[in-house]
Design a protein around this nucleic acid. Sequence first.
DNA 1: TCAGTAATTGTAATAGTTTTCATTTCATTC
DNA 2: GAATGAAATGAAAACTATTACAATTACTGA
Lengths: 333, 333
Amino acid sequence: MKTITITDVAKHAKVSKSTVSQYLNKRYEYMSEKTRKKIEETIEELNYQPNIIARSLKQKSTFTVGVVVANILHTFSTQIIRAIENYFYKQGFHIIVCNADDNPEKEKNYIEMLRAKQVDGIIIFPTGDNLDLYKRMKSDQFPIVFMDRTIEELNIATVMLDNHLASKLAVDRFVEKGYEKIAIITTSIIHNISPRIERIQGYKDTLASHGIQFNADYIKTVNAEEIPNALSEFFELKKPPQAILAGNDIVLNEILRFMKKHDMNIPEDVAVIGIDEVPYANFYTPTITTVNQPAIEMANQAAELLLSQINKTGKKDTSVHRLKPNLLSRNSC
Amino acid sequence: MKTITITDVAKHAKVSKSTVSQYLNKRYEYMSEKTRKKIEETIEELNYQPNIIARSLKQKSTFTVGVVVANILHTFSTQIIRAIENYFYKQGFHIIVCNADDNPEKEKNYIEMLRAKQVDGIIIFPTGDNLDLYKRMKSDQFPIVFMDRTIEELNIATVMLDNHLASKLAVDRFVEKGYEKIAIITTSIIHNISPRIERIQGYKDTLASHGIQFNADYIKTVNAEEIPNALSEFFELKKPPQAILAGNDIVLNEILRFMKKHDMNIPEDVAVIGIDEVPYANFYTPTITTVNQPAIEMANQAAELLLSQINKTGKKDTSVHRLKPNLLSRNSC
DNA sequence: TCAGTAATTGTAATAGTTTTCATTTCATTC
DNA sequence: GAATGAAATGAAAACTATTACAATTACTGA
């Protein structure tokens, strides 16, 4: 099964390679209607597909972008992937999906491979542990956008949630409903991931703004598997929390699982709000109040930022774009 | 920012391009220890990254595979993507993710672009409407594996669920619990998608095996948005169903949403089983009985089949691999 | 018929590797 | 000191398409 090339097409259509190439690049002014037709037919007949690899080599553009998510298990990540894919499809780009698994080594490996593959740009949920690599890309002027997390000192375009506000919305709501003993659980201890820090800070600040003493026992940062333990510890406290803020959808699932197992009622025994919308939120019993991240909007914005870097349109935007979450007010609090 | 190439490395290290290439390909026998060291250092110093596009052009292999899912909104699709990504990461392959959106045109476009990009193989959830295209790939001996759906006449390696069994497990369970008025709702009307047909057939056959008269009013195939209507119609029947089988996770969500809205109790007012496991299944009230597809296993098997086609190892396997679902027995039925 | 324009061609350079094969280098042996 | 053989290296072609450019051909209208 010999693959057929532009040379074969040229031969069959009895024109030169250059003319075929002109045709492929839609520069029809350089040829007669007749020639155009003939080439068109030949391509059809031979079922010719230009080799994009060869084109990319010459043109230094692959119409492909990489998306490196920190952890593909978060619903948020898959929503973002979906939306980015959708955005770039319309632009004629393909996306290569990479799951760094919260592992900086893996992230590094992926980024280097993507660059070696000459992708036109990368959207990364940075683990935060590859500073040198990020810096190099930056200094190479390689198109790159951070998603979900920022690394202050780098000045790389970033799209992320206003995490401080996310916590504030939740804590305000708890307080409004009369709760004062408010706990928070987040995951991803390992690195200084900005969302986690900001969410905890937002939590603390908002408590303070309501004049509530913050209690270190009410803050947990643990791996998913340890969430049941963490919850047990909460409820063994002399003054167990009356309300819990879940840092993401995985935490929320674990909390609800725990509640079910221990026959506890929401919100009577403990009120719950989750950051990240979940599909069952509005038909669970009770319906779950969540703080929603505008994932599609975030993805579109990141994609747009990346595309403008790739096309070098607009002036270089290296700012941190913080999108506002919104409280989806339901009955779990 | 001039990119540096193998030529630069060769010059700096004062050896020929070929020797550098030998080094890159780890054929160290062809050079002295001294040369090896020198090249190594030079690469380090210049921060050289081989251009994989150029390599691919020559080698006709890109270490990239495409995954074209029919509809990325199904949890099942994202699970499969995850698992495939994970499998291929270990093999040094990248995956390009494509969402055909149940649209044959889009599917065609994606497949052609992927081939033009010289991916080494494709895993497809076929829409079923591009027969010629599938045939051409087959006759080109292009590595391809079908996922979730089969197209009988094509003899292309396929990994899919034993859908007949999936329905059987559910219906058996319903009957065992004493229900006789059993309904089924599926989505994706448009094409003759095999899973849908098989699930409905499995449903009919199993009813028959229990000597239950099948009732056309109890079968609905509708788009996601029309599910509430479909359910309303069920409950307006003289003899509304006592049990409903949800064809996938989206349907299940809609059913639960409907029940909640109309204050109906599961399983008292109507029993429910879903095909596809959902994250909330074991902490929902009631916990939801589901028929689970072994997504990871399916993904691994598909990836393995594809890889063996790519590497031309083993004899050509063009059979349909049907994996067994299992009933996760809980309280919604 | 000639100028002028439009259409097309052929060639060569280019992209950055891999790969083959010929050549050079060098130590060893007689 | 020359012959031998192995090890190391280099030169060049190949992969496929793009692009620039000079050269050629065909056609139009005066």
